[in-house]
Amino acid sequence: MSSRGRVGMVCLIVAEASLFAVFVVAYLFYLGKSLTGPFPSDVLSVPVLGTVCLLSSSVTVAVGARALARGGVGRCGAWLLVTVLLGAVFLAGTAAEWSRLIMREGLTVSTNLFGTTYYALVGLHASHVVVGLVMLALITVFAWSRALRPVHAERVELVSWYWHFVDGVWVVVLTVVYVIGR
């Protein structure tokens, strides 16, 4: 039988996917229903750098988890540090976009339906990125302090599963918000 942690994490991911699905449906349903501007096509541009960073962080986290399974605590820590940095770049991109939208374009959650659904969906995803970054940063610190040992390989792998899920959700968000929605 498979381990408790794996089954539990898969269940959590299913529940989270169900949560995101509702926000995605809401975004698609309310597309083009805003009564006033600004509209997505006026203010959104595809966040290329953030996307590249986030998607490549899926590779680095996988390499890190595999390194730990083979006993390389230091290498695991290094790869996870890279992952954290890549995720931080993504978050910084989101922060910059939000600050531009709020300060320059005057788009807030209460401006129109676009603002409502955009901040809800992108914000929900960003909050998941934050949770993932906290977990990954903790593991990095543990690796650096040598509290992390190869017996923890499965737990790190489970965190990497969560991170892959967050990445997968971003692909959906990117498609819905920046491709279809524009």
Partner: peptide
């Protein structure tokens, strides 16, 4: 989770002036 999602939307509507 869909109920939780809808309730988060309602919270946004009631506290932050969102328009769901």
């Amino acid at each position: 989770p869909p109920l939780s999602a809808a309730q988060v939307m309602l919270l946004l509507d009631r506290f932050l002036g969102a328009h769901f």
